[in-house]
């Protein structure tokens, strides 16, 4: 808490708000005391203080910098022109919609329309949800990327005709995009505000995302390659070109569909999707449908399938494709189950 009030007033109010315990004089620092400290001294002691009394806006920059040196992500509120440098310095500058000057709002990252501290808490909660949803989108997209890389790499080693850039771009940019965005609209998971802030050093891969990307990517590649191998070993058509065209089409379809099924898995990193709710997120349902249509259009519509250099598949081939794609759900569910068991023990 930062205030221009006198020390005693500041202490009494902070105690009322539960920022410090009543009578905890040591947690209060005045602007004059801060002026006496060297930067090094203050950097060392900053964690001891929760309340700053009689401070002017100039002190705010020092307070922000000291916390940032400790590697903390710092949010700072302010409304005067003099607050602007501190607002800019902070990781999150919070301006005041009602009392704030234009300059302070301009230097802020977010502005509270109601000037209310509680809104910051709401915003933090919303921010955590957004981060967790971005993580889901990244997990989803990178699993596909890894799957594609492994498929291409192994196929090349085996001297198989692999998917072309156009196929990969179609999946990366079209059919994967809708579910990825829709994952951004997933509702918050229930324990969101109970864990500690993740801090500056965490990244998108923390919380089990990296391992998920790896095993899911490997599984996707395995499925696609298996479908390709099946198509070559038990061909429906004859002739080298026709067989390889079938195999390529089937692996393209498998990769596209596997991602659509996999999107359901990603709804929760650790929870079973049957617990999270399969169809709760309406935007997500529409996204899956849209992607399914986009995938089918390029394979089934004459003319378009020529541009995409894909062949016509018969019903047996489709069954193989669907089966291999769907397998991603039971597989990931099983891994999640094992992970939860291990964590418990």
């Amino acid at each position: 808490m930062i205030t221009g009030d006198h020390r005693d007033t500041a202490e009494a109010i902070a105690a009322r708000l539960g920022i410090i315990e009543a009578g905890n004089d040591a947690a209060v620092l005045t602007g004059a005391e801060l002026d006496q400290m060297s930067t090094e001294e203050f950097d060392e002691k900053v964690e001891n203080y929760s309340v700053y009394a009689r401070v002017s806006p100039e002190h705010k920059v020092r307070i922000v910098k000291a916390w940032q040196k400790l590697g903390k992500v710092v949010a700072m509120t302010g409304d005067g022109v003099n607050d602007a440098p501190a607002l800019k310095q902070a990781d999150i500058g919070i301006g005041m919609g009602i009392t704030g000057t234009e300059v302070s709002k301009g230097a802020s990252d977010i502005v509270l329309a109601d000037d209310n501290f509680a809104t910051i808490v709401v915003a933090v909660q919303e921010g955590r949800k957004v981060f967790s949803n971005i993580q889901k989108a990244i997990q989803y997209l990178l699993a596909a990327n890894l799957g594609e890389v492994l498929t291409l790499f192994i196929a090349t080693l085996l001297a198989w005709d692999t998917m072309l850039p156009i196929h990969l771009l179609w999946i990366n940019l079209v059919t994967d995009t809708f579910p990825a965005i829709a994952l951004g609209m997933e509702p918050a998971e229930s324990n969101l505000m109970n864990h500690k802030p993740r801090g500056r050093n965490s990244n998108f891969f923390s919380g089990g995302i990296l391992s998920s990307v790896v095993y899911q990517g490997i599984f996707e590649a395995a499925m696609v390659l298996m479908v390709y191998a099946t198509a070559i070993m038990w061909p429906v058509h004859s002739g080298y070109n026709a067989i390889h065209a079938d195999a390529l089409t089937m692996s393209f379809a498998t990769l596209g569909l596997i991602q659509l099924f996999h999107a359901f898995n990603v709804k929760s990193v650790h929870q079973s999707i049957f617990k999270v709710g399969l169809f709760k997120n309406k935007a997500f349902n529409w996204a899956i449908l849209a992607s399914l249509v986009m995938m089918m259009v390029v394979i089934l519509v004459p003319g378009l399938n020529d541009a995409f250099r894909v062949a016509h598949l018969d019903i047996h081939q489709w069954v193989i494709v669907l089966g291999a794609s769907f397998a991603v759900i039971p597989f990931v569910e099983l891994v999640k189950l094992v992970q939860r068991k291990i964590k418990k023990d």
Binding site: I13, W67, V74
Partner: peptide, 14 residues
């Protein structure tokens, strides 16, 4: 915002 660890807030009005 989601990673915020320290919130330094003005008292008055906030």
């Amino acid at each position: 915002l989601g990673s915020t660890e320290i919130i330094a807030s003005d008292k008055t009005g906030t």
